[in-house]
Amino acid sequence: MSGIALSRLAQERKAWRKDHPFGFVAVPTKNPDGTMNLMNWECAIPGKKGTPWEGGLFKLRMLFKDDYPSSPPKCKFEPPLFHPNVYPSGTVCLSILEEDKDWRPAITIKQILLGIQELLNEPNIQDPAQAEAYTIYCQNRVEYEKRVRAQAKKFAPS
């Protein structure tokens, strides 16, 4: 494992614990031996107030490669969400998460999670990743928002 990646992720964890947006979660997972795995984080993004996503808490896994922060983490909703920019596998399609697009090593975990929260309610229809959600979003916004509200209710924190 890269010392650069681990040191950056340790800084990220410290900064997150000191200050993070209300309702968001970002925690490194534990290895079988109980030690912390900084390369694999369990996160959760709350649906934004005043949107059909409100009330939901959407679980996301963030996986970092050894060359982080040169390369972005892979962000994957578990379980996958109904959304035009979420692949059926759950992987998020967002330009700041793509090395050859808008990724920059200075982007923080907090910025990534806030960017994904923004994307939930403002899909990028130029870059669809899920045919069904994309089609319904474009053709029947009322039905799309109904499905999103049902999903938010399903993923409401207990």
Rank of each mutant, 00 (worst) to 15 (best):
M1I: 06
S2W: 02
I4P: 08
L6S: 07
R8C: 09
R8M: 11
L9M: 05
L9Q: 03
L9G: 07
A10G: 08
E12I: 01
K14M: 05
A15L: 12
K18R: 14
D19K: 06
H20N: 00
F22I: 01
G23Q: 00
G23S: 11
F24W: 05
V25Q: 12
V25W: 07
V25E: 02
V25L: 09
A26G: 09
T29D: 10
N31G: 06
N31H: 11
D33N: 07
T35A: 07
M36V: 06
L38I: 10
M39N: 10
N40M: 12
N40W: 05
W41Q: 05
E42P: 03
E42K: 12
A44Y: 15
G50M: 02
W53D: 04
E54P: 01
G56R: 01
L57D: 05
L57W: 08
L57M: 09
K59G: 08
M62D: 05
K65Y: 09
D66R: 03
P69T: 00
S71L: 06
S71M: 06
P72W: 03
P72K: 04
K76G: 13
F77I: 03
P79N: 15
P79L: 12
L81E: 00
F82G: 04
H83M: 02
P84Q: 01
P84G: 03
P84M: 14
P88V: 08
P88M: 13
S89G: 14
G90K: 02
G90A: 05
T91V: 15
C93I: 00
L94E: 06
I96E: 00
L97R: 03
E99T: 05
D100K: 12
K101F: 11
D102C: 11
R104T: 08
A106H: 01
A106W: 02
I107D: 10
I109E: 02
I109W: 08
I109P: 04
I109A: 12
I109F: 07
K110V: 10
L113C: 13
G115Y: 05
L119Q: 02
N121R: 11
P123I: 04
I125D: 05
Q126Y: 10
Q126E: 13
P128D: 04
A129D: 04
Q130Y: 06
A131S: 14
A133H: 04
T135H: 04
T135Y: 08
C138L: 07
R141Y: 10
R141H: 13
V142F: 12
Y144R: 02
Y144K: 02
E145L: 14
K146V: 13
R147D: 01
R147C: 11
V148K: 01
A150V: 11
Q151L: 07
Q151F: 05
K154W: 06
F155A: 07
